[in-house]
Amino acid sequence: MKLTISTKSALHGSLMLLPAAVLLATFTHIPSVMTFFHSLFSTPTGRHAAEFVGFENYMFLLEDDVFHQAFVNNLAFALGTIPTSIGLSIAMALWVNGKIRGRVLIRFSYFLPTMVPMIAAANIWMFFYTPSYGLLDQFLGLFGYAQNNWLGDPDTVLPCLMVLTVWKEAGFFMIFYLAALQGLPTEIYEAAKLEGVGRWYYFRRVTFPLLMPTTLFVMINALINSFKMVDMLFVMTDGGPDNASNLLLYYIYETAFSFWDTAYAATLTVVLFLILAVAAIVQFFYFDKRIHYR
């Protein structure tokens, strides 16, 4: 049998794609489908096999107030961390992009939190927040404030974790902005200078719009991170007190590896997947139209 040139090249192309496709399918696509499949069954235990229950797990989800709380917490966590870390990272990038003394040292120190593993960072911050012995309480104590149980109070625990997350992430995003800033053409700046444009006006009308592709990238990353960075919960709060700092992924872990309710954990995973998919789609389709790519 003789192959035409076009089938030949198609075959060639498919073969080139095969290794990546196999890996993706094995570790991403098949598990995703299996997760959805498992979410339609009850959890098997040593004595009872799994039974098909349809959407019962999803119905339970609607009444599960821990899920509701984790969901609301996660939204608050995303809203509290994403804009702040983006704003902060732009500010830091602009600052260290200028000609200042000790530029390398400042860049390094901004990037340092990113290099510290989350578990280590959480342990350090735990010391800051410890009631009465912690750095924060000792500092406030100088001004006569009473001790605060930062991580033990449902009203302060989530903001405390947000501060840690912003501290940890801003330096990382700064690197992207710094790279983008250095890629900006200097002619525009010179032209604007000739026109007598103020710095803030220049930033608002020129720099920021030109940074939009980076912002989109950073925003998607920050959003994903706000749903997947839960390491600090293991060290600092275990999702407590009374679920005040519980986030979706931690709740999934708890359901799967502490309650061993794998079917319900699969259900929660499907929901988390849907949330992230919708967010990514909105970001791509909505913002993409507004971004100026050079």
Binding site: T130, P131, Y133, N149, G152, D153, G240
Partner: peptide, 9 residues
């Protein structure tokens, strides 16, 4: 103390 008391500390 009000609020939670840490088992570890």
């Amino acid at each position: 103390p009000q609020g939670l008391i840490e088992w570890g500390t």
